[in-house]
Design a protein around this nucleic acid. Structure first.
Lengths: 111, 111
DNA sequence: TTTCGGGTACGATTCAAGTCGTACCTGGAG
DNA sequence: CTCCAGGTACGACTTGAATCGTACCCGAAA
């Protein structure tokens, strides 16, 4: 019941190329944007994003996000949760998450 | 001698996905990082970056950067120059250029 | 235990992107 | 004029990424 924490790279090892590659995809960017918009940073179910793609493809995208160091994945066996690594991201790439609000409704779009 | 200015998208039409896709490539990111590090924003020759790739491939990369709206290209016929669209980028995606300094020497790497 | 929903593993497919070879264009130098 | 260096156009190749089908795993609930 505890849930195994699937680990990604250390905060210091975050690679800007991998991050940009991860955020280049529309689906992954939408996930991170919604996580960034929720300032409570609570854990969220992986199937709560209503992505218009099959579950196999979702598995692939969440893996990419984890390997890029953007999210933590918590495996409960029959379901999974993710949590935004906001502190790590802000430390290495300050301001990056704020950029995602520029195209997502509900985010802090500057005007 | 005047040089035709090859135009990219308008400042308001900059797409975050296209920008991330453009910056996902190491060569293109290195070009933008060096342009961003030079705060004088002067025009720069396209062959002044010593990219370890053929000139045909360089043509491809500079085109991607222009179509993403990150640089202006100035065509002189037998040579070409590029200029960073710093103001436009800062207006749409404030702080983005600063992130590139996190991995390039000469930039403002935080420590 | 069986059932069921969420998730993964592996493979196949499709498509986009990075790369370069060949040929050609352009403007300046000699 | 010719030559030359920088740049482009077009095509081909190769790799990687996104997607899904099939089969299987896991934990909770009936």
């Amino acid at each position: 019941m505890a849930g195994k924490n699937l680990v990604g790279p250390e905060a210091d090892a975050l690679d800007l190329g991998a991050v940009f590659r991860a955020l280049a995809d529309e689906h992954r960017r939408s996930v991170i944007a919604r996580l960034a918009a929720d300032h409570s940073d609570s854990e969220r179910g992986c199937n709560s994003f209503d992505l218009p793609i099959s579950k196999q493809t979702q598995t692939h995208h969440f893996r990419v996000l984890r390997e890029a160091g953007l999210v933590h994945e918590i495996d409960y066996g029959n379901r999974k949760g993710i949590r935004l690594r906001r502190a790590d991201i802000e430390r290495r790439f300050p301001g990056l998450l704020a950029l995602l609000g520029a195209e997502s409704p509900g985010g802090a779009a500057p005007r």
